[in-house]
Design a protein around this nucleic acid. Structure first.
Lengths: 388, 388
DNA sequence: TCTTTCTGGTCAAAGGTCGG
DNA sequence: CCCGACCTTTGACCAGAAAG
């Protein structure tokens, strides 16, 4: 905010006009931008980098619990304008960004509430609650860790791809119709896409390899089973990546691959896989859901070891991890007080079937392109995708 | 905000009326005179010392800018009587005195602060424990009702089929190897199965029709959409029915159809659809989960009406019912204190993808049998399964 | 002990409300 | 309608407590 008149009461206070020199901020102490609303922030509050406004807002919201539900039918979108959203949604965003209620202390001026060294006695937890609290926290930090890994790697991927093209710029161009598929330059588009497809596919797969290395369970799995799981997941990975990218670009009726080019398989009919983008866009998967969905699909290896073709050990370990991630996602839902999260979770999981069928459609169309030498794939793609 | 009246409404400590004994008050809080109109002021507003009236006037003038020009030939003289001047001139005086438009903040949310007219009972009738309890019970009875309907109809189906064969008896026979498929009587088996397949398929589909009639939402859906949903679900229905039956029979390595005969598509390789039985057996779906799974798959119609091909109304209604059933299943889990039910629910939902792919495999193999006239299907099967 | 970092509290000054 | 007294909400600043 650009006020701050309060202190200046004594001084001459030269009414800060439009072009006032006062706003020359030497950014004293600014350590970054508020995760919640984007304003400059001078420090961390309740666990995350946040501005003073969001800090105070959060404290008040927790202390005097009120307005817990948004009164709009379509909840406000606090992501870009947290400070203008309604209180319920702003509070929800605080939680989503990771502010922790546990960091709130009881009233300061009550005697006996001081922390003794290293031991917050203001949260003297009964032993049973303690363990439950601990496991909740462990789950929360698990999902946070997984999410940040996933985002870090994905950002890196876009960094790599940007060296070739400005992804969003091209996406916008498409939106404005420059690249809109039509009969006239259909074949031209395909030629243009040939290199794009093999390029982004390779980048996506390398990203996949890098990502699974960050999953601790994968260290417990034999090389053979690793390959099996990877091959099983690779197409789904491509669909999820392209799907979220397409959904984020918010364009209709085209299917974007990660560098922003569009891929119409034919003119009159959109490819099957573009259908998955609509649910993705509508659900607006939060990062935690996205990573959970990916892990669930990667680790979903049927009912029994015999049928999944995996070793007993692998089977047990992956299923256990999958269950843990599901539990972690639920802990996250509860933490951010997401309303009706069972239904939400159901919708998220149900995306798997759409993704699977989109993946087979993609396999089919890529297979054709490969056989007819329209696109040539590198070694890693051959191995992971075409059973090469 | 709907609270905060307590202090003002409780004791009317302020509002000193004209005849109040404290009329000569030193006016606590008065810090000077309004620069604009000369009235006493309690603080600074928009950069200058101003009274409440000028403050609110200025905000409104900026927000809804109107009356920007004075209608008098000789402009009013707002210096001495700002409050009596026309709006244009009063606004001009505000600016001349140094009020700054930049001090205006973006609109706050209207929703969170709106009060209904006439000062509602600020003990807002809350969603208290009672209603929550009621809705829990409503959900529990919903899932119970659905479950018993489902079971009743399925029992009836077996009753019908028993008139032909003793289903479980034959299943046992298979377990003991009498009917185990091998090369020698492969063709004999197929011939035997031809009538079985068409027969049980028909029975299963009639059962399906009877079942969906028990779902109240289906009354709200147009005939066209009903057919669409049914056709979409029919194969999945067959898989679920056969799958649970096979799983219950607890035999390995065969795929049973509902009358207890086994259906090996070829000898050396088991049909794709038999893979779904293993997860079903391992999960041991409880009846509530089974019916919830069926409804979820029946009502799962993608993200948007455009993509699902359904009418807007249908789309909304089915999704709402699906969500309600999910909530009901969760209520059931909580009711029976099932441990780790989120993971359990995840596993149940994840069966959808196995069922879907088994369904396409089944479609393929039945299609072959139909084309080569190995099996002839009745009218209803033709319509629901083969787009006839 | 001194500094850093984060806590809760404060209050001037925003915005909204609803009889007049 | 507009006006403005009155109310709630906001956030920059402050002092104090833990941690280093």
């Amino acid at each position: 905010m650009e006020m701050g008149y309060s202190d200046s009461g004594g001084q001459l206070e030269q009414a800060p006009g439009p072009g006032s020199p006062v706003e020359v901020k030497p950014e004293k102490g600014i350590i970054g931008n508020c995760l919640i609303c984007g304003e400059p922030s001078t420090g961390k509050h309740y666990g995350i980098v946040a501005c003073l406004g969001c800090k105070t807002f959060f404290r008040r919201a927790v202390v005097q619990r009120q307005d817990t539900v948004c009164k709009l039918e379509t909840p406000c979108e606090p992501k870009l304008m947290a400070r203008k959203a309604c209180r319920a949604c702003r509070y929800r965003r605080c939680l989503e960004c990771g502010m922790s209620k546990e960091a709130l202390q009881p009233r300061r001026d009550l005697i006996g509430c001081r922390r003794i060294r290293n031991r917050p006695n203001w949260a003297v937890p009964p032993p049973n609650v303690m363990t439950e609290e601990v496991s909740k926290n462990a789950l929360l930090s698990l999902i946070e860790r997984l999410t940040s890994c996933d985002e870090r790697i994905r950002n890196k991927k876009f960094e790599i791809l940007r060296s070739k093209q400005e992804a969003l710029g091209l996406a916008n161009a498409i939106k404005e119709g420059i690249c809109k598929p039509n009969v006239d330059h259909h074949s031209k588009l395909m030629i243009m896409l040939a290199s794009d497809i093999s390029n982004t596919t390779q980048t996506d797969l390398l990203t996949l390899l890098e990502w699974i290395k960050t999953l601790p369970v994968f260290k417990l799995i034999s090389q053979k089973d690793k390959e099996l799981l990877l091959k099983r997941f690779a197409w789904n990975h491509l669909i999820i990546e392209c799907g979220t990218f397409t959904a984020a670009a918010n364009v209709d009726d085209v299917w974007l691959i990660s560098n922003g080019t569009c891929m119409p398989r034919n003119v009159e009919k959109l490819p099957e896989e573009s259908k998955v983008a609509a649910p993705l866009r509508q659900l607006k998967l939060m990062p935690q859901e996205l990573v959970a969905l990916r892990i669930i699909m990667l680790m979903n290896c049927g009912g029994t070891p015999e049928y999944s073709g995996l070793e007993e050990q692998t089977h047990k370990v992956t299923l256990a991890f999958r269950d843990k991630v599901i539990a972690a996602l639920f802990a996250h839902y509860e933490h951010i007080e997401y309303p009706n999260f069972p239904e939400r979770f159901g919708s998220v999981i149900l995306m798997t079937s759409g993704i699977t069928s989109a993946a087979s459609a993609m396999l089919e169309s890529y297979q054709v392109m490969r056989l007819f030498k329209i696109v040539s794939f590198d070694l890693i793609s051959q191995q992971l995708l075409f059973n090469g």
